[in-house]
Amino acid sequence: MAIINRALPIFAAAIITGCANNKSPVNMQDSAKSSTEKKREPISQPLVSHIYTADPSAHVFNGCIYVYPSHDTATGTPENDNGDHFNMMDYHILSMDSIGGKVTDHGIALHIKDIPWAGRQLWAPDAAFANNTYYLYFPVKDKKDVFHIGVATSNKPEGPFVAEKEPVKGSYSIDPCVFKDDDGSYYMYFGGIWGGQLQRWNDNKYDSAAGLRKGDELAVLPRVAKLSKDMKHLDGNVKEIKIVDKNGNLFKEKDNDKRFFEASWLHKYKGKYYFSYSTGDTHFICYATGDSPYGPFTYQGVILKPVEGWTNHHSIIEFKGKWYLFYHDVQLSGKTHLRNVKVTELKYNDDGSIQTIDAYK
């Protein structure tokens, strides 16, 4: 997270209705501002414009696409490097039955006031389906201002969800991504430095005084843990995920155009595991590949070039024979903390590499 708004606002519009259980949308007041400079044209438009959304985790459930985003709101919280101005209060789930088609906002799926252990800041969530139940995983600071990951359940993909009374034991930091492997095992990937507090966790122990790594130190690594069959606990210890260069070397903090910052996502393509993530302060979505859900993953390149706005967060799904990248920028507001979710097609080369996407023409 950060303090700088590097985006210039431009106008946008979106279509809203959707996949199932439609609710009447509320048209947002036009909050876009005129740009004083000529802007490049975006390749995609916001999925919705009546609320601000970010950090989209997309999944295919029951033949529809469900998107689990953050819900940005203007709370007036001052901006800082810890991202306190990203002060989300609830989650809205979106659905659609086709890319480019109508989108449904299903209303509030979970509010922070209904999470017994929560203090503040509901950040980027994810979801999974198992045991005939839908699970919503979410990071939120506890009452001591430490991030942990919680879980809530529902019998419908759009919710509403009911949160467990305690966070997932052994979890910490932010940005959960839950991946189902071919054998039916589920894994949770998580972590984010700076405001996400990952730098404070070493050997799965919390040190409130731990600072950010220096340039010549090894970069902080993302985390992974297998989930238990009830999807509410970790099955074993949290492990670090090694992201290495082509020579097998770990990245240093100064390699901030390649090292991990936040926004883990895992998908599988032609038997290969693809771990993608945001580099944060350099604004790339990068990816690395490996032969195990635990890694190591070898860096391969950039999926998405920097977007307008400070943050970058994504997800990748296959739907009806094509692959898609969900992401966000700040087209509607021009403000770092008021973002909008988008989608565009993702393409592979014959060798399995991913073609780099520029979000603007």
Results as ranks from 00 to 15, higher is better:
3 I>T: 11
307 V>C: 10
184 G>V: 08
305 K>F: 10
224 V>R: 08
259 R>H: 12
242 K>H: 15
140 V>N: 01
249 N>S: 15
246 K>T: 12
310 W>N: 15
85 H>N: 14
43 I>L: 00
177 C>Y: 06
294 Y>G: 08
261 F>M: 11
213 R>K: 15
42 P>N: 05
269 Y>C: 11
307 V>Q: 07
138 F>D: 10
289 T>P: 00
254 K>E: 08
93 I>P: 09
328 H>C: 03
270 K>S: 13
329 D>F: 05
21 N>W: 01
174 I>K: 03
303 I>T: 07
355 Q>C: 14
101 G>F: 13
93 I>S: 03
24 S>N: 14
26 V>W: 00
218 L>V: 15
197 Q>F: 04
69 P>Q: 05
8 L>F: 12
213 R>M: 13
323 W>E: 13
345 E>T: 15
281 D>R: 03
192 G>A: 07
65 I>W: 01
209 A>L: 10
9 P>M: 03
119 G>F: 01
306 P>F: 01
29 Q>G: 05
324 Y>D: 09
44 S>N: 08
143 K>H: 10
16 I>C: 06
163 A>K: 00
55 D>M: 02
341 V>E: 13
80 N>C: 11
361 K>H: 10
317 I>W: 03
43 I>K: 00
227 L>Q: 11
337 H>L: 02
238 V>A: 03
263 A>P: 07
100 G>A: 09
315 S>M: 06
261 F>Y: 12
135 Y>A: 02
328 H>S: 06
323 W>R: 12
5 N>C: 10
263 A>R: 03
277 Y>E: 02
101 G>W: 11
194 W>M: 13
27 N>A: 04
228 S>K: 14
316 I>H: 00
334 G>I: 10
89 M>F: 09
70 S>W: 03
72 D>F: 01
92 H>S: 08
244 V>W: 04
